[in-house]
Amino acid sequence: MKKLLSFGLILFLSILTACSNDQYASSDDGEWEPEQPIELVAPAGAGGGWDTTARSVSQVMEEEGIVDEDIGVVNKPGGGGAVGWAYVDRKQGNPHHMFIGSPPLVFIPLNGQSQLGYEDFTPLANMIADYAAFAVADDAKWDDLNDLFDDMKEDPKDITVVGTSSPGSMDHMQFVKIAKAAGVDITKIKYVSSQDGGALTQVLNGNADVFSTGVAETVEQVRAGKIKVLGITAEERLEGEVLSEFKTAKEQGIDATFTNWRGFFGPKDMDEGQVKYYEEKFKEVSDSESFKEIRDKYGWEEMYMTSEEYQEYLDEQNEELRGLLDEMGLAE
C-alpha cells in the first residue's frame, strides 16, 4: 500500500514539472532580464585559456556592476571540451547557462569526437583573440620557423611536434596550418599529444622537438632561458615585455595566421531578447577599462563580435578547418 502511495505521489509530481516549460522566455516586448545566478562554464580545468577568460569576464561584470545577478564560473573538464558542451546542451530552455568556446568547438566535432558542434548552440558574442606559439629548447639548432621548416622538408622523420590537445585538434592543426603555408608536406608531420605539463617536459628532455602551444604559456620559460619561440601566429607583433620579441610567421615570409578566438555560447534556441541582453552586456565588458588591462596582461587582442557576426565568422572557420582536416584525412 505504501509503495502504491509513493508511486502515485511521484507520478503527480512529475506531471507537475512537465507543465512548467518556457518559464524563462522573454516578455512580449522582447525584453529579457536574468532571474537566476548566471553560470559560465569553462569546459576545462582551472588556469587554462578558457578558464582565465571566463573568470576575467565574470570578474569585470561583477566589479563594474554590469549584471545584477551573481555570475559564477564552473569548470567542467573532459573530452577536450565536449563534457562542458554536453552539460550546457542539457540546459536547453534555461538561458542562465553558457560556456566559453574557441576553435576546438569547431575541430572536435569535425574529428568526430563530439556529436555537438557550434551549430548546436547560440553564439552570443566573441570577446578576444589569442595566438599560437611554436617553441623549441633553448639550445636547439633552429632560430626561426624557416630553419625548422627547411629541415622538415628535407627529413620530416627527425622532427616531432608535441602539444596538449588530441590529434586533429587545436595544438596539432595550428601547426599544420602554418607548416602547410610554408610548403611542408603536412601528411608527414609527426605529432604527439601529452597532458599535465608533459608536453613542455618532452621538449626540455629532447624526446620531442617543437612545442605547439599558446603564446602565454611560453613567456615564463622564455624569460628563464629554457626555451625559445620560433614564431607566433598573429597578424602583427604583440605588445608587452617578452611578448613583443616574438616574431610572427608573417614577417618570416609565411603567409598564414591562426587565431584562437574566444567567446560565449548559450544553449540552442535562445530567443531574441535573451541574445540581445547578453550581446549588450558583453559589449560593455569588452569596452571597459578594466577588461583592457586584463587583455594587455595576458597578451590577448580585442575581437568583439555580435551574435550575428560571430555566426558568420564561425561558418567561415568551419569551412576552412574542414578543408585542412580533409586534406589530412581526419575529418569524419
Binding site: 588556469g47 599535465d196 615564463e220 628563464a224
Partner: peptide
C-alpha cells in the same frame, strides 16, 4: 611544470592569482 592532475589545478590557482610559475 605541473606534475599531476592536482598540481595542474594548483598551477591554475597560481595563474588566477596573476602569478605565472616558472623557473624564475
Amino acid at each position: 611544470i605541473p606534475g599531476s592532475g592536482t598540481t595542474a589545478v594548483m598551477l591554475g590557482a597560481f595563474l588566477v592569482m596573476g602569478i605565472q610559475p616558472g623557473p624564475l
